[in-house]
Each structure stands twice: as structure tokens, then as C-alpha cells.
């Protein structure tokens, strides 16, 4: 067996650290995250013929990771349901302004987001995917990316400020 990387392999190897960062933020758990990365890499290798050479492999891999993640969520319903009840969050009671954040605070806060909002926020703000790439990776319209992004940010801001949004947020275009 040859140890050299072909072009796909070399590209895939260069994306691994990014996949791990995203998976860690998405799951909040080192082991779950690496499981997600492993499954994503295996899927990517199986489906590599679907990747068009020259196109952005990173965005393509995030698409695969999203699909794997959604499947894992379906088969692993243990994730705590998300509620809008601010009093249920101990993070909310800290009432620390966003600029005084600690790592644990931000992690706890994004853990409280519905998975679909967390994905959008992390792909855009952490992984710097364009809005269009995010829409494609998640299989949703651009408008949905924008509204989920807004909701995610408002939710996190509310949690960290101790003023979690009450009721339903107004929908924005």
C-alpha cells in the first residue's frame, strides 16, 4: 500500500483540523466530535467521486458532516430539549455582558441553541463559510440562513445578558 496522498487525500487531510474545530463546537464533546469527524471522513471517501475537482472541498465536507450529524441526532435523541425558559439556564443568571465572556460561558450558551441554529451560527461565525455556502451545506434557503443566524445571535446574547428573549422573536427578512 502506498503512503502518498493523492490530490483528494491531501485536500481532505488539510481540512481535518477545521472539521474537528467545528465538530467540537457543535457537539461540545471531544469524543462525540471525533466520532463525527471519523464518520464524515469515511462518508467523504465513499462519495469522493461526487466531489468536483477544483471546487471547494471544505464546503463539501461540511455538507457531509451536516448530513452525518443530522443522522446521529436522529439515532441519539438524548440531547436535552431546548426551551426558551430563561430561568432554566444557570448561565442566564450570571448576567455577564458579552464582552466579559469566558470559554465555558460561550460553550454553555451555544449548547442551549437548537441544533439548526447552532449549525448556522458556527458555520458562519466560526468557520467563515459564506452565507450561500452555509445554505448549500445545510440544504436550506438563503433567507432561512439569515433568520436562523439572527435568532441564534439574539438567543445567545439574551442568555449571556441574563435577558433571554421572551416569547417569539419577530421574523426578519
Amino acid at each position: 500500500m502506498r503512503a502518498d496522498l493523492d490530490e483528494f487525500g491531501a485536500h481532505a487531510a488539510s481540512v481535518i483540523p477545521r472539521l474537528r474545530r467545528y465538530a467540537r463546537a457543535l457537539t461540545g464533546d471531544t469524543l462525540l466530535a471525533d466520532d463525527l469527524v471519523q464518520d464524515t471522513l469515511e462518508r467523504a471517501l465513499i462519495k469522493r467521486h461526487l466531489w468536483r475537482e477544483g471546487s471547494d472541498l471544505r464546503a463539501w465536507m461540511f455538507t457531509i458532516m451536516h448530513n452525518v450529524y443530522v443522522n446521529q441526532l436522529r439515532s441519539r435523541p438524548a440531547e436535552a430539549p431546548v426551551t426558551l425558559d430563561a430561568e432554566a439556564y444557570n448561565v442566564a443568571s450570571r448576567a455577564s455582558p458579552v464582552d466579559m465572556l469566558e470559554v465555558g460561558d460561550i460553550d454553555a450558551a451555544i449548547r442551549r441553541l437548537p441544533a439548526e441554529q447552532r449549525e448556522v451560527l458556527l458555520l458562519v461565525a466560526l468557520e467563515q463559510l459564506s452565507y450561500a455556502e452555509t445554505a448549500q451545506a445545510l440544504g436550506i434557503p438563503l433567507g432561512t440562513v439569515m433568520s436562523r443566524l439572527y435568532r441564534a445571535r439574539e438567543r445567545v446574547r439574551g442568555l449571556l445578558d441574563g435577558s433571554a428573549p421572551q416569547g417569539i422573536l419577530k421574523v426578519v427578512k
Partner: peptide, 10 residues
């Protein structure tokens, strides 16, 4: 294992 996995892309 991750590196090994993509090394096997042939």
C-alpha cells in the same frame, strides 16, 4: 487514524 484514513484514499 484520521490521517491514516485519508492516506488510504486510493
Amino acid at each position: 487514524h484520521f490521517s491514516a484514513l485519508v492516506r488510504r484514499t486510493h
